[in-house]
C-alpha cells in the first residue's frame, strides 16, 4: 500500500529582502491512511511551515508532496484553494470561527463548499454540541468553539484533518476532551489526523510521531503502543 501522505525531500526557503531563511530542508516522511500523526517540535522548528505546505496554504521550494498519491507541490493558488476546499480540514489553535455566524452556520459555511458534505447538524451532534447549534461563537466556551471548529473541518469529509496546536488555547481538561474527539474520529471513522504541537506528551496518542528540529526531520517513529488520551498526562 502506498503511503497516504508523502513528503519527498521537501525544502522551503523564505525570501525576505536580501535575506534567505531556510524554513525546511530535505524533509521526507510518509503517513498512512487512518493514522493519527503528531508532528512535534520547538517553536521555530518549521512545523508550521510544514503544516502550511501540507495544508495547501504555502508552496514549497524544492521536493514533492503527495496526498493520496496526488502530487500537490505544483498546484497554483486556484488549485490549492480547491485542494483545501475538498481534501483538507483545518483545526486552528484559536478556532478561527466566524464570529458573526452561529455554530451551525460556521459548519455550514464550510460544508456548502463541498460536493458531499456531512449533514451539519449531525456533525455538531457528533461533537457533542447538539444543543448549542444556534449559539454564536462568543456565546460558547473555548472547548465548545474548538468542537465547532472540528465539526466544521469534518463536515467537509476531508481526506486529511490538520490540527494546529488544537489544545493550545484550552485548559487541560477541555484539551483532553478535544484530543479524545480527534482520536475517536480517527479510530471510528478512519480519518487521517495530523496534529502539530510543541507538547511532546501528545506523542503518546499518535500512531506515528515525527520530530522536527531546525527545519529538518529528526525522527519518524511508528508508535506501536498507542495510549488512550485519558491516560496521557501533561
Amino acid at each position: 500500500m502506498c503511503a497516504f501522505v508523502k513528503f519527498d525531500k521537501v525544502g522551503k526557503v523564505y525570501h525576505s529582502g536580501d535575506v534567505n531563511v531556510t524554513a525546511l530542508s530535505d524533509v521526507s516522511f510518509e503517513i498512512d491512511r487512518g493514522e493519527i500523526c503528531v508532528i512535534v517540535g520547538q517553536s521555530g522548528a518549521g512545523k508550521t511551515t510544514l503544516l502550511n505546505i501540507l495544508g495547501g496554504m504555502d508552496t514549497l521550494t524544492t521536493g514533492n508532496v503527495y496526498l493520496d498519491g496526488v502530487d500537490i507541490s505544483g498546484y497554483d493558488t486556484k488549485k490549492l484553494a480547491d485542494y483545501r476546499r475538498h481534501d483538507i480540514g483545518f483545526v486552528f489553535q484559536y478556532y478561527n470561527l466566524i464570529p458573526n455566524l452561529t455554530a451551525l452556520e460556521n459548519v455550514e459555511i464550510a460544508s456548502q463548499l463541498t460536493r458531499s458534505p456531512m449533514p451539519s447538524q449531525q456533525v455538531l451532534r457528533d461533537v457533542g454540541l447538539g444543543e448549542r447549534m444556534k449559539n454564536f461563537p462568543a456565546q460558547l466556551s473555548g472547548g465548545e468553539q474548538q468542537r465547532v471548529a472540528i465539526a466544521r473541518a469534518l463536515a467537509k469529509r476531508p481526506k486529511l484533518l490538520l490540527c494546529d496546536e488544537p489544545t493550545g488555547a484550552l485548559d487541560y481538561l477541555t484539551g483532553k476532551a478535544i484530543l479524545k474527539l480527534l482520536q475517536r474520529e480517527s479510530r471510528e471513522n478512519g480519518m487521517t489526523v495530523i496534529i502539530i504541537t510543541h507538547n511532546s506528551a501528545l506523542t503518546a496518542m499518535a500512531d506515528r510521531v515525527i520530530r522536527i528540529k531546525s527545519g529538518t526531520v529528526q525522527s519518524v517513529v511508528k508508535n506501536e503502543v498507542v495510549t488512550s488520551v485519558e491516560d496521557i498526562e501533561w
Binding site: A81, R84, R85, I98, I109, A110, L113, R152, K156
Partner: peptide, 14 residues
C-alpha cells in the same frame, strides 16, 4: 484579515 484568511483556508476561491 483573519476571517478572510480562515475562509481561504476553508477553500474559498479568491
Amino acid at each position: 484579515t483573519r476571517e478572510i484568511a480562515t475562509l481561504k483556508v476553508l477553500g474559498f476561491q479568491s
